[in-house]
């Protein structure tokens, strides 16, 4: 019983990180149909920022100052990446260049991390003490990640349904040509969407820094888990990413707890294949009328 609670609580915590990656996927995907393979390494960079700026026993004050800084920094970086990714798409008929450019961006970030810090994994300490919940000790970053995921879910929901810019992005998602004809500046909004996804992973990486692996080769694992979360929930649906993320977190934590950490990714892969074979549109996605 105690074990189950640990798995559940820790799984929900790390699952919130997956959910955040999934939501950051959705923002870009909805505006441009692009899935950013570099999103996992971007999360790691957010964590690295925390490692670089926070002292070994950080206070709460600096933490609150650097949290928005991390988000903004990653937003700027992703805007640049988004600009580069969209560049070949504007002129070429080859519409799959983003598969390569985003993967290349991911490889480059991993390579830079390798050059500057080798294969070492950095550790960050949280300024918040862990607390007891239902008889288990919960590290604060898990709870904060969950809180952050809920906050971003609410913000995105408001943004997509109330804010004018968000509505314009929703319009792009539904019909690109119609949106363009209506005078929406598609290119600019797509870069904005990249920047927003940067805000999400930048803040997520910073908040979850003490509980994620900040290393040169851990980004791929995060991007995969984020993708599994988004697919289980239904690509494009933030509610789906939230639910999917928590689900993936708990299931992979259970796998790690029962079979050992080396099987964590394998179980997520099995989960992904199972969902794609059974219900490719995900839990909250809708099968679309096919255009022929």
């Amino acid at each position: 019983m105690q074990d189950a609670l640990i798995v559940l609580v820790h799984g929900a915590g790390i699952g919130a990180v997956f959910a955040l990656i999934g939501m950051s996927f959705n923002v870009v995907f909805n505006s441009s149909g692009i899935l950013n393979f570099a999103q996992g390494n971007m999360l790691v960079l957010g964590g690295l920022f925390a490692f670089l700026v926070l002292p070994s026993s950080p206070g709460i004050g600096p933490w609150f100052v650097f949290l928005p800084a991390s988000a903004l920094l990653m937003a700027a970086l992703l805007a640049v990446q988004g600009y580069l990714t969209l560049l070949p798409l504007r002129s070429s008929v080859e519409q799959h260049s983003w598969l390569i450019t985003t993967l290349a961006a991911s490889v480059i970030i991993g390579a830079v991390l390798l050059i500057f810090q080798g294969t070492a994994q950095q550790t960050v300490r949280s300024p918040f003490p862990s607390f007891w919940f239902l008889g288990t000790r919960v590290p604060a970053p898990y709870a904060l990640s969950l809180l952050l995921a809920l906050v971003w879910f609410g913000l995105l929901r408001w943004f997509h349904t109330r804010a004018l810019t968000g509505l314009a992005i929703s319009a792009i998602a539904q019909d690109l040509d119609a949106a363009r004809a209506a005078g929406i500046r598609v290119h600019r909004l797509q870069i904005l969407a990249f920047a927003i996804s940067g805000l999400i992973v930048g803040s997520a990486g910073f908040v979850a820094a003490p509980v994620i692996a900040i290393a040169n080769d851990s980004g791929v694992s995060y991007v995969l888990h984020g993708f599994v979360a988004a697919v289980i929930g239904g690509l494009g649906s933030d509610l789906g990413a939230l639910v999917g993320g928590l689900l993936v977190g708990m299931i992979s934590m259970y796998a790690a707890y029962t079979y050992g950490g080396e099987f964590q990714d394998a179980v997520s892969l099995a989960l992904l294949v199972a969902v794609l074979m059974g219900r490719p549109e995900g839990l909250f996605g809708r099968p679309a009328a096919r255009r022929v």
Partner: peptide, 8 residues
Amino acid sequence: LAYGMVAL
């Protein structure tokens, strides 16, 4: 880094 940059 080299092959990431070359591909990009």
